[in-house]
Simulated assay, not measured.
Amino acid sequence: MPSSAEPLIRFEGTAKTYPDGTVAVGDLDLDVREHELLTLVGPSGSGKSTLLRMVNRLVEPTAGRVLVDGRDVATQDPVLLRRGIGYVIQDIGLFPHRTVAQNVATVPGLLGWDRRRTQDRVAELLRLVGLDPTVHGPRYPHELSGGQRQRVGVARALAANPRVMLMDEPFGAVDPEGRRALQEEFSRIHDELGTTVLFVTHDIDEAVLLGDRVAVFSQGGRLEQVDSPIRVLTRPASPFVEKFIGASSAVRLLSLTTLSPADLTPGSAPAPARALRVGDSLEEAFAALATSPDGVVAVDGDDGAPAGTLTLAGLHAALRRSVREEAAAPA
């Protein structure tokens, strides 16, 4: 849910060069809008994590500034700054000898919240990330699956209502099925809370699935393109972006586009095993068509009444419609 207001995070001529001469980030200008989820994607060595860590001063820039809500982070106490910014990493960093509830309560405790307020917030957040407070709250991290631990990490990062969340490959160590579930869950949470998120990934599929916008980086922290997911996939701004996306960009569009009544053919399908609904993703539609013996799938409207049928031709038309609409939209 990007905002048109002033950016919440701004990188102004930001650069990071290490003493051995390695350029991690080079002269970057980038605005992050309030409420948006901006994914940072690129190969290893493209400066994504370095850029992220400059926001909470785990890494200091060698040139330029990083502003959060109009204030240069270099002028702020790093401890206080970090307490107001959620941070989630791949290995989670949960305290092994503290329960799930105690882990989530870490920042509220540092901020001096009273016991009742903290308990209520912990329970609220565990439910938000799909965990039962009474079941999972008393457990220790080693008693949870990898996906559950990542959910606890997200809950802990959200505990003090941060306006900004930094996420560095947060789902990278989770198996593919669990990773997709976490992606869908986090997308729902972001839609609900509207927190401004910088999300680092090396996976272009994850970047376009989650991001309101996608920032593509090449070696040396060079920003090649920042744009909507569909524009990045269909209108790459450089040969690097085109190569990085690869040949399967059209398939990725399936997860970004939803069915509309305009994509349907009037009529009904014979006794389908399942029916789609207007608003379902084209990825779901493709899966349904792939298992349909006659290549026709019934589609219901929002009210549950039959709205028509979808064929492969309709699926293709929906994909083309999405690309045309995105191309016509203002940048």
Rank of each mutant, 00 (worst) to 15 (best):
D20H: 10
S187P: 01
G194N: 05
M1D: 11
S281Q: 01
V251A: 13
P330N: 06
R151E: 10
S292A: 14
L254E: 10
D227H: 08
V107L: 02
V68F: 11
G137C: 09
L233Y: 12
L223A: 07
P7I: 02
Q76V: 15
D91W: 11
H35M: 03
V79T: 10
S3V: 04
T39P: 05
T39R: 01
I85N: 04
G26E: 14
G172K: 00
A215C: 14
F217M: 14
V152Q: 10
R179T: 12
G112Q: 03
S281V: 09
A5E: 14
R277L: 02
A215M: 12
A327G: 04
T258L: 04
L233E: 06
V296S: 08
R98M: 15
F240L: 08
V297H: 06
I245S: 03
T265R: 07
D31M: 06
M54Q: 09
A74H: 05
V104N: 01
D203I: 10
R252F: 10
G13F: 08
W113C: 04
M167K: 01
D302A: 15
G267H: 02
F199W: 13
D175P: 06
D120N: 12
D280V: 05
E177K: 05
P138I: 04
P96Q: 00
T118G: 12
E283T: 06
R320Q: 11
D77R: 00
G211M: 07
V59D: 15
R235Q: 14
A181K: 03
N161Y: 12
A318G: 07
V200N: 06
E185A: 15
L276H: 02
D303C: 07
A5N: 09
T106K: 00
A273P: 02
V174W: 01
E124C: 08
R324H: 14
L38R: 00
G221Q: 06
K243E: 15
Q150R: 01
V32M: 11
T257V: 15
F286C: 08
Q102N: 01
S46P: 07
P108S: 08
R277I: 05
P261K: 01
E192S: 11
F186E: 05
E143C: 04
D132I: 01
R156I: 03
H190Y: 13
D91N: 15
K48A: 14
F95I: 09
R222S: 10
G70M: 05
G279S: 05
P266T: 08
A275D: 10
F217A: 11
D203C: 10
A288D: 04
G146Q: 05
R324L: 14
P61M: 08
V66L: 09
V25C: 05
K48H: 11
E242V: 00
H142S: 10
L289E: 07
A298Q: 14
R127A: 06
T17D: 04
S145G: 07
S49P: 05
A269N: 03
A247D: 14
L256A: 13
A247E: 15
A331R: 03
Q150F: 14
R320L: 13
G279I: 04
G194I: 09
V107G: 03
S281T: 15
V299E: 02
D175C: 11
L58F: 15
R98A: 11
R115L: 09
L259V: 11
A101P: 02
L8G: 13
R33T: 09
R127W: 11
T75V: 13
P19A: 13
V25Q: 01
L80T: 02
R274P: 01
G308S: 06
G295P: 04
V55N: 01
F11M: 02
A269V: 12
L67Y: 11
R320T: 13
